[in-house]
């Protein structure tokens, strides 16, 4: 880890000014990505601006049924909040199926959205990686790619977006609020995560020094009937191979409304709009679920090593729809015990 200087910010505007005026400064929140990647020599800031004292930790339900989450609210606190569990079970489930209890106590919601990929070629600080060092090439495409993305990839990067909760938030038309040197902004979540294209080092539209201040989840009554299904090799403490965030409203055997997003298979939290479009108005039968899944995955571009994810994702989508579609209530993610 390179030598760094440290300062602790006491108000948001000062923190933003401190980072935005210095290209070598980074914000430090929970540290679970920043400290890890500093030590790995993947990140190289000269100065850390500690924002943990900023008053951005609120978790509150809005009167219309939505949710406002401060950027510095910790994953564990958000997952435990009754209003989150009641209105948005998929958010609570996605949070609690991520990382470990200790990491969830540390990691902030804002930091979670900005966490970096687990691609080993990105993390090793040695291999060619367009995300870490633009223009050097992508080692994963011809390399070991079992965990890599099959959707939203480019010839420059196939790294999977690692967040679980971002997948749930993407299904819910969330807005990400920021404060930057040019004032406050709000981004629809789908615009917040960028596809790698030919600039995989740009993962989001934030300017340097622009700080996530909060996450706004709009009211969505159907989200009360929702789940987050996570499929992985190990039963806990592992990133997803495939995950499905799903909220579903069924009336008389027909899907009235649906929100779906996928994790573990795409370079960004993947809103499954094609599947949603297919499903609205469709009968809750397995054939329709399978067709919706196939439609969503039609453009998948796997490597030989991760080709199984295309099938696995479809089966996970069907499983999620099956679980919610029969009206028996939300599932418990991959935690459903054998």
């Amino acid at each position: 880890m390179r030598p760094i200087t440290y300062l602790r910010a006491t108000d948001t505007a000062t923190a933003v000014a401190a980072v935005s005026t210095d290209p070598t400064s980074d914000f430090l929140a929970g540290g679970t990505t920043e400290v890890d990647l500093l030590r790995q020599n993947v990140l190289n800031p000269r100065r850390l601006v500690d924002i943990n004292d900023l008053p951005l930790t609120g978790i509150e339900g809005t009167p219309d049924g939505g949710l406002r989450i401060g950027a510095l609210a910790r994953m564990s606190d958000v997952a435990a909040a009754p209003v989150v569990r009641e209105r948005f079970p998929l958010i609570a489930q996605a949070l609690e199926l991520g990382a470990s209890a200790q990491l969830r106590n540390m990691a902030s919601m804002g930091g979670n959205l900005l966490q970096r990929v687990r691609c080993s070629y990105f993390r090793d600080a040695e291999s060619a990686c367009n995300k870490r060092e633009p223009g050097t090439g992508c080692s994963a495409i011809e390399g070991f790619s079992r965990g890599h993305a099959v959707l939203g990839t480019s010839e420059h990067c196939i790294a999977t977006h690692p967040s679980d909760v971002a997948v749930a938030l993407t299904a819910l038309d969330t807005r990400v609020h920021t404060l930057g040197p040019n004032g406050e902004r709000a981004y629809p979540v789908d615009d917040f995560f960028l596809l790698p294209g030919d600039s995989p080092h740009r993962e989001h539209p934030l300017e340097h020094g622009e700080l996530i201040t909060g996450i706004e989840v709009p009211a969505m009554p159907l989200a009360r009937h929702s789940l987050y299904l996570k499929v992985r090799d190990r039963e806990s403490y592992e990133f997803a191979l495939v995950s499905v965030a799903l909220a579903l409203s069924v009336m008389n055997g027909t899907i009235a409304d649906v929100r779906m997003a996928l994790g573990g298979v795409a370079t960004k939290p993947w809103r499954a709009r094609r599947a949603e479009d297919f499903l609205i108005g469709a009968a809750t039968v397995r054939d329709n679920f399978a067709l919706a899944a196939r439609v969503e995955m039609a453009d998948a571009r796997p490597t030989p090593m991760n080709a199984f994810k295309v099938e696995l994702a479809q089966r996970a989508i069907v499983r999620a729809l099956d679980t919610l579609g029969d009206g028996t209530g939300p599932g418990a993610g991959s935690g459903s015990s054998p």
């Binding site: 030598p3 760094i4 200087t5 440290y6 300062l7 602790r8 910010a9 006491t10 108000d11 000062t14 401190a18 000269r46 100065r47 601006v49």
Partner: peptide
């Protein structure tokens, strides 16, 4: 607000 920058030593 005054911020005190400390380090890198």
């Amino acid at each position: 607000a005054a911020l005190e920058e400390r380090g890198p030593g």
